[in-house]
């Protein structure tokens, strides 16, 4: 069972503001899903390597050659707050981490 305090902690890590009602519901729903998922912890996986990639590929490197990229003004076209050729953001402020 996921405690409400754990939900609040994870929500902070995920940068996700949850209302009280959302956080309460999340604790119940995630607990139910985790109860189902828990069963895999009963499997004997001693010595089994974790999967890092499903297809056998060794070194997928490309040649290190400069190519053109998106012009700055195009990259900024969708930004909520383009400022002086960059992305504008609010001040990190006293509450920043």
């Amino acid at each position: 069972m996921l405690e409400r305090a754990q939900v609040d902690h994870v929500a902070r890590l995920a940068r996700l503001e949850l209302s009280d009602a959302e956080a309460e519901r999340m604790a119940v729903e995630l607990s139910k899903v985790l109860d189902h998922i828990e069963k895999i912890r009963e499997l004997d996986l001693e010595g089994v390597p974790p999967t890092s990639h499903v297809v056998d590929v060794v070194n997928a490197l490309r040649a290190d050659e400069p190519t053109s990229s998106l012009p700055r003004e195009v990259a900024l076209r969708s930004a909520p707050e383009p400022v002086a050729g960059g992305f504008g953001v609010p001040s990190p402020g006293a509450g920043g981490e």
Partner: peptide, 20 residues
């Protein structure tokens, strides 16, 4: 996260509050 594209909810908050 409201910085490069898509929605931003700002309301005069600090950076982390804007993200959240």
């Amino acid at each position: 996260d409201g910085v490069r594209y898509g929605l931003r909810v700002d309301s005069g908050a600090d950076l982390v509050s804007m993200y959240s």
